[in-house]
Simulated scan of single mutants.
Amino acid sequence: MFERNSGIPIDLGWVSRSCVNEQAVKGRIQDLLSSRFVHPDHQIDWLARSIQCIDLTTLAGDDCPSNVERLCSKAASPLSDNVIGSLGINHGLLTTGAVCVYPARVANACQGLKRIGTNIPVASVATGFPTGQTSLKIRIEEIKFAVKDGAKEIDIVINRELALGQKWGELYNELVEMRKACGESHMKSILAVGELCNLTNVYRASLVAMMAGSDFIKTSTGKETVNATLPIGLVMCRAIRAYNRKTGFKVGFKPAGGIRTSKDVIQWMTLMKEELGDEYLTPELFRIGASALLNDIERNIASHITGDYFLAEEMPMA
């Protein structure tokens, strides 16, 4: 295990000096997509590995104990028994990285996972998700509520007004308070990149979030017009790498929003491998926020094993 990111005093000089060459970013992504391929013989292994990095998510207004418990069952057994058997994986060894719900459903998720007998962590969105448009006091209380009910990971949203106004010191101070409220639970800071206007702001917000002690930085809530894209992911990965070189701390990365297909997830895993190394293909440092993705992965794995084509509705839904 690596040392948890404890954060550092904010370095406003480092933040203000940071700029992103957007054309260079686009060029790097084009190079990755055109020159890096996963051989078809290895794609199933990559897809099975990606399941371990999924934060299986439900964030719907009609969430209730029964559908959260169903989600927990799917997280503990993400592939059908015949597919698991064909892959040569013992039952119970392959699970998703976490189950992600609203704070009000954390207790339901913890109870559901306990009944199954799995130690999959529960992640909770918090701090006025998805907009963050509540007072800091209320945002802090929401974190404490989710932690008290058993959440081991807290996905907080940053204050976009402060980021857009380049008020990095104020943003840092808010995040430090949120990190304290998380206690032993890991904090994933959602940047809401689609609302930050440009890649330089994404890079700077990434640095500030890590300086404040974030265990992960996350692209999006999934509710913005623009969510996880590979150019944005590249910029955030470069910030993670720069922070690691300067501080020695490894910070995880979580793309979320719009990652729905097996092709999507292989592209993201390729980015992680190329930019941050094989260590970032593990759930300790890489998570994918998704709800529909697992269904597509199971379809592709089942098709590879049987040679048949499966419709989405033929797979057990999360």
Rank of each mutant, 00 (worst) to 15 (best):
N21D: 15
N21L: 15
E22N: 07
E22V: 10
E22P: 15
A24S: 15
A24Q: 11
A24H: 14
A24V: 13
V25Y: 08
G27L: 10
G27D: 12
L32M: 09
S34E: 03
S35I: 01
S35K: 03
R36G: 02
R36H: 09
F37W: 13
P40K: 08
P40E: 14
D41S: 15
Q43T: 11
Q43M: 11
I44M: 09
D45C: 05
R49N: 14
S50F: 05
C53G: 07
I54F: 08
L56Q: 11
T57M: 15
T57N: 11
L59A: 04
L59F: 04
G61D: 12
D62M: 11
D62L: 14
D63N: 05
D63K: 14
C64L: 03
S66Q: 07
N67C: 02
V68W: 03
V68Y: 07
V68G: 02
L71R: 06
L71H: 01
C72M: 09
C72A: 00
S73A: 11
K74A: 11
A75R: 08
A75T: 00
S77A: 12
S77M: 13
P78K: 00
L79R: 07
S80D: 06
S80V: 07
D81S: 03
D81H: 04
N82R: 06
N82I: 06
G88H: 03
G88S: 04
I89E: 05
N90V: 05
G92T: 00
L94E: 01
L94P: 01
T95Q: 02
T96N: 09
T96A: 08
T96G: 06
T96Q: 05
T96V: 03
G97V: 10
A98R: 08
V99K: 02
V99P: 00
C100V: 02
C100M: 01
C100Q: 03
V101C: 11
V101G: 03
V101H: 04
P103H: 04
P103Q: 06
R105V: 07
R105H: 15
